[in-house]
Amino acid sequence: MTILLYKLLLGFIVGSVIAMLSYITHFVTKSGALALIFVATIICGFGPWPTWGLIIIFFTSSGCIHLAKKMMNITKVESVTAKGHARDAWQVFAHSLPAIISLILFYYTKKPLFLIGYVSAIAGATADTFGSEIGILSKKVPRSIVSFKPIEPGLSGGISILGSVASLLGSLLISLSFWLFYSWYHASVLPISLIVIVPFICGIVTSLVDSLLGATLQVTYRCSICGKLTEQRYHHLQQTKQIHGISWLSNDWVNFFSSCFTVLFSWFILHYIQ
């Protein structure tokens, strides 16, 4: 218990530093910063140090991309996405809550299945973030993952070559980082197929499931003033009209369900591999 309390305190301190830097660079809102502190505290308290490194890599790399886009003054999707670039608490928890649950299960059971579930969720969050943040820089118009027809940049369900490559690299970054960290921490305890391949595959699957849900079930509105499709309830100070999807299924819920699917999918794979 003493070690756990010490790790929780360390996580709170590290999380506070990351949250402060993220808030200063407008990567998260005030609520997002508080949520980030909570997530970092739980991960440091219940997970081995390699799991700490992954969350630091995720927020650092995502923050750098966000900062670079801000310096380039890229804001062309602000009128389309439901929320701004700064992540609030719901967005932070949507990606991290399934990962935290899997990590806590690993803490109490010591089963590698749950540890890989955590890594897979972080790989999926990174793949999704890289895909959406970098994909918007594509000079080509994104296409719907379902119909392959051109759609408005920034709308959920769109894919592009640049975004797909970014998602792949994001998932690979987390998978390889965990392999390096874990090999140093516990050499040869887990085969490389579990450490790298499973999280890598699950990360890619997450971005695909996220896009699929975004294109089929996520709520979409149309502005009565400009006629554009948007994820916002109000556009040009006027209430928009729902034209597609389930009314309560916002992008936050899509991210949450995608993350849940990732964790469960990794558990399913490992159950049959082992």
Rank of each mutant, 00 (worst) to 15 (best):
M1P: 09
I3A: 11
I3N: 07
L4V: 13
L9W: 12
L10P: 01
V14E: 00
A19F: 01
S22D: 02
T25D: 05
H26G: 02
T29Y: 08
A33F: 07
L34C: 08
A35N: 02
L36H: 05
F38K: 02
V39C: 06
V39I: 15
I43T: 14
G47R: 01
P48A: 10
W49G: 04
T51A: 15
W52T: 03
F58K: 10
S62P: 09
M71S: 09
K76Q: 08
R87P: 05
R87K: 15
A89P: 04
W90M: 12
Q91L: 11
V92Q: 01
F93S: 01
A94P: 05
A94G: 08
H95M: 09
L103C: 08
T109R: 10
K110G: 02
P112K: 09
F114P: 01
F114M: 05
F114I: 05
L115F: 14
I116A: 05
I122T: 06
I122C: 07
A125V: 11
I134Y: 01
I136C: 09
I136Q: 11
R143H: 11
R143P: 01
S144D: 06
S147Q: 07
K149P: 02
P150V: 13
I151Q: 04
P153F: 11
G154D: 07
I159F: 09
S160W: 02
S160R: 08
S164Y: 07
V165G: 04
G170N: 04
L172M: 15
I174Q: 03
L180V: 15
F181K: 03
S183M: 08
W184K: 10
Y185E: 00
H186S: 13
A187V: 11
A187C: 06
I197A: 12
F200R: 05
I201A: 10
L208G: 03
D210N: 13
R222A: 08
R222E: 11
S224V: 15
G227H: 05
G227Y: 01
G227N: 03
T230R: 00
E231C: 07
R233G: 12
Y234I: 15
H236K: 08
H236I: 01
H236S: 06
Q238G: 00
Q238N: 13
K241C: 04
H244P: 03
H244Y: 13
I246F: 14
V254G: 03
S259N: 07
L270V: 15
I273N: 03
